[in-house]
Computed example of a mutant assay.
Amino acid sequence: MTKLLSSRAAFGLGACALALSAPAAAQAADVNIYSSRQPALIQPLLDAFTKETGLTTATIFIEKGLEERIKAEGANSPADVVLTVDIGRLDATKQAGVLQPLEDAVIEKDIPAEFRDSGKEWSGVTSRARVVYASKERVGDEAITYESLADPKWKGKICIRSGQHQYNVALVAAYLAHHGEEATRTWLTGLRDNLASAPEGGDRDQARNIAAGQCDIAIGNTYYVGLMQNNEKEPEQKEWANAIKVILPTFENGGTHVNISGMGLAKNAPNRDNAVKFMEFLTTDEAQRIYAEVNYEYPLKPGVTLSETVKSFGELKPDTLSLSDIAANRAKASELVDEVGFDNGPKS
C-alpha cells in the first residue's frame, strides 16, 4: 500500500499549515518519504519494497523547499526518508540540519564511497551523466572534452539551459575543482560566447533546438534522452531524440561529470528502523535495476546491469572527483555564472 501526496498546491499556504497537515496524512504508513522526485519515477520502487517487506509507504512530493518544509515541522515531522536529486539539493538538506548520520554496513558495502557523504548524512542511489547532445547530421564522431566547449570552433553552435540551474552549477563546480577560479572564469566566458542564443528551457528543449537546426550541440543529462526515446505519449519527443546522439565528454584530467539521485535519514524519523530497511532496499540489486530502468539512470551498486537504452549511450567512465568537493564549490560556481553574464547569452 502506498499513499501519494503532493505539496505543490498547498505549498503557498505556508509552512505552519503544512506542518500541521503532514502528520495526519502520513500516520498510517510504515515509512514516510519526502521526495522531490516526480511520483512516477519512484512508484515502482515503492511497490517492490512493499511486496518484499510488507511495509507500507506514504510519499509527500515536494518539488521545491523540501528542507524548509522538514525544518518547519521540527520535532513533530513525520518524515522518515528524504529522496532528492543533485548534490546541491542533498548538501542543502544536510546544511539545513534536517538529516541524521547513518552508519550502515549494507549501504556502505553497496554504494561506493565517492557517492556517499563523508559525514554519513546522505548516500547516492543512482547516477546520471552531464553529457553532450550532438546533431547526427552535423557533428562527426570526434571526441569532445568539457574544456573544448569553449573552443571558438563551436561559436554560435551550442544550446544550454540556464547556467544557474542546479545541473549546470554542479558542472561548473566540478570544473572549478579541476582547474581553479581563473581558468573556470575564462572557460565560462568562452562557452557563453559559443552559445547560439541566451540560455532557456530545459534539457529536452535543447534536443528540440538541435532537431530544428538552431544549434549543433547541447549540454544535457543522459536520462532525458532515454525519456524522450521512449515517450509514447508525446511522439514529437521521439523525433527530437532521433535527431541527436550522446557524446560522453570528459575533463582533460578526469572522466565524465556525473551527479546523483540520493537519500538521507530524516533527523526526527518516527519510524527509524523501517526507514533504514527502505534505504537498504534501495541499494539491493532489484531496486537498483528498477530505479535505473524506469529512469534511464546508472546504478551505483557495482555489477547491476544497465538498461538497454543506457547501454546505447556508450561506456561511461565517471569522473573520480568527490561529490563533496563539487558541493563545496557550488557557491563560487554560481557567482561566476552571474559574473560573466552567462544567462544573457553571447557577447561577441
Rank of each mutant, 00 (worst) to 15 (best):
A327P: 00
W154M: 07
G88S: 10
P199G: 02
A10P: 00
E308H: 00
A134N: 09
K3Y: 14
G220I: 11
A28I: 04
S7Y: 06
A275N: 01
Q27D: 13
K332N: 06
A72D: 03
A174V: 00
T250L: 01
W122V: 05
Q100M: 08
V337N: 03
I290M: 12
L18P: 09
L171K: 06
R208P: 05
E181R: 13
E286D: 14
A29H: 02
I217A: 09
A29K: 01
S162I: 02
L171E: 08
R138D: 14
A113G: 01
L248P: 03
R330K: 09
K301H: 01
S7V: 06
T283I: 06
F313R: 04
A241H: 04
H178P: 01
I87D: 01
A243W: 07
A79F: 02
V304S: 06
K71I: 02
W154R: 09
A22D: 07
V106S: 11
V132G: 01
T126F: 10
F49R: 03
L323V: 07
A150R: 00
G201K: 07
S197F: 15
R89I: 07
V340F: 02
P249D: 12
I111L: 10
G345C: 10
S6P: 02
K317M: 05
E147V: 13
E297D: 13
K238Q: 15
M1H: 06
T2G: 03
E286V: 12
L83W: 08
P101K: 11
I217V: 15
P270N: 04
P44S: 06
A105D: 15
N242R: 15
I326R: 10
K301N: 01
A19E: 04
G226V: 05
H165I: 03
K347G: 13
T305F: 03
V258K: 00
L46G: 03
R138K: 15
D151Y: 00
Q237C: 04
K238A: 13
G264E: 08
E280W: 02
Y133G: 14
E232F: 04
M263K: 11
G314F: 01
G180C: 14
A173I: 03
T250Q: 12
A170S: 12
D80T: 07
V246W: 05
L4C: 11
D47S: 09
F49A: 02
A92I: 08
R89P: 01
I107M: 09
G345Y: 05
H165W: 07
D117C: 11
F313T: 02
Y224G: 06
D273E: 14
F281P: 03
E293G: 04
L5G: 05
K120C: 06
A241M: 06
